[in-house]
Design a binder for these strands. Structure first.
Length: 125
RNA sequence: AAAGUAAAUCGGUCUAUCGCUGCGGAGGGAAAGAAAAGCACAUGUGCUUUAAUCUCAUCAGCAGAGGAAAGUCCGGGCAGCACAGAGCACCGCAGCGGUUAACGGCCGUCAGGCAGCAAUGUUUGGUCCCUGCUACAGAGACGAGACGCUAUAAUGUACAAAGGGACGAAGUACAAUGUACAAAGGAACGGAGUAUAAAGCGGGUGAAACGAGCACACUGCGGGCUGCAAUUCCAAGUAAACCGAUGAUCGAGCGUUGCUCGCGCAAGUCGGAGGGUAGGAAGCGAGAGAAGGACACAGCAAUGUGAUGUACGAAGGACGGAUGUACGAUGUACGAAGGAAUUGGUACUCCUCGAGAUUAAUGAUAGACGCUGUUUCGGCAGUACAGAACCCGGCUUAUAGAUUUACUUUCUUC
RNA sequence: GGUGCUAUCGUCUAGUGGCCUAGGACAACGGCCUCUCACGCCGUAAACCCCGGUUCGAGUCCGGGUAGCACUA
């Protein structure tokens, strides 16, 4: 099932700071992706962070919509990283930052998320 | 019918698939200890059950952004800190009356300016006693009347100058006196467009000319400060800071007298206590110090909740010529219970409404409908402004489109 | 989320309601100087964030909007 409960959300000031400081980074237009592999042995779920900057989108309505689109795209295609039933699956911390100045439709964002997840899955293994 | 003005209301709906947050419920699971009950035996242990706690790849169910949630411009609640009372300073408000928990809001109304044919909109409005300000122009800018002219004791400056100690010369300092100017004074005199003792009137300058306007001045009223990232609690942990013990032997640090001893401090070691930050919880929403309505209710009594109520009518009423307008004491009717005041605990009905997240949910995709415009009647285009963050009352700003009521102007028909 | 502040030539800034037709420095442009450049000298152009109000008069005072900055765990 493609769910996205609260446990899969990346929280905590220290962990977010560490991810942006030490994580690997690439661009999948219209987003920038920062990610990090969780060390072996810690059997935590993959956690994801999503945001759109206030400096590019002044109105809260647009920021909310972009955030929801990105989150929905990840929810539909999180199978690429491996299903939950796998016992020896790999876990990641991932952050999606929207960087384009225009509001893109869902299809564009969905394609970009698929491309990014495939890249992470390929590099992680 | 068209155009306009004001007030009020609404501001999308449905289906399919997948998903998020909260709530209580059902079901399953978990480990250790505590409580109650029961059973067994050596009065303590073991076992079982109950409710409670925690949890879930479970199950259906219910609820889930706004009229402005925005700006943070006012006011209040709530929280912490400060605080005897009064005054000063500082800040805010300002026709008049009313309304309110409170307000800079709202309602009614008066006067002036501006826009409009009008309905109407918009904007300004305490006072000048004290302290000050009013550039340029103008005789004069807030206690001021120029200007001309005349006489004069004394004063200052400039120029001229008799004189100016020794035997003499030059003539310095100084200087009677005279002239001019300045400032001061106004006893007498003169003129100004008219008039004339002055005041006043008129012309000119100027936004404003003894008339005033303004605020930094005065008067009245109000204001303690900071804000939910306030504030409170929980578990874990301990810092060069705090407390207690120790600080032995040789040498060694600082202070107490230059030295020694002694005393104190201090390093180190052990123990205790203990924040802040990060994490979690409360505050936080089925509310009653803050939603609306119905008309009854609860209790042992006093009584309490509801009700600071609703309707009628009305003295008064800023203003106004008057009728009378916003509001409205007393009164009448309806209204559960009660009837001076105080007090302990308990109780506080029904209906409607019902977000409570926290790296921050309220969504995504596909289709259908509705509304507006256009149309070749198949379609095509558009469907706004915008997202809760402790909660309320206002204001301001942004808004596609739609509806209702009242009024104004113009036209047409009867 | 809450609180406070700022906006003047291209840049940095000055500016008691009237002497503001808004001053200064650097930069820009034109000329002079030089064999040429620089330095130097002379000159020119260039701004009160936007919309209303108060006042005889507003860059300044008041209200609303826009943009930017800082503080606060």
């Amino acid at each position: 099932m493609n769910t996205f409960p609260k446990q899969h959300k990346l929280c905590g000031q220290e962990r977010i700071t560490r991810l942006y400081k030490e994580g690997k980074r690439f661009t999948a237009w219209p987003m920038r992706v920062t990610w990090e592999k969780v060390p072996e042995g810690q059997t935590a779920a993959t956690e994801v962070l999503v945001w759109a900057p206030k400096s590019l989108f002044k109105r809260a309505v647009k920021r909310n919509r972009l955030r929801r689109l990105m989150r929905e795209a990840y929810r539909l295609h999180q199978d690429i990283l491996g299903s939950d039933s796998d016992s020896d699956q790999l876990s990641f911390l991932i952050a999606f930052n929207y960087i384009d100045k225009e509001e893109q439709p869902f299809a564009t964002i969905e394609k970009a998320v698929i491309k990014a997840l495939k890249k992470i899955a390929g590099t992680g293994q």
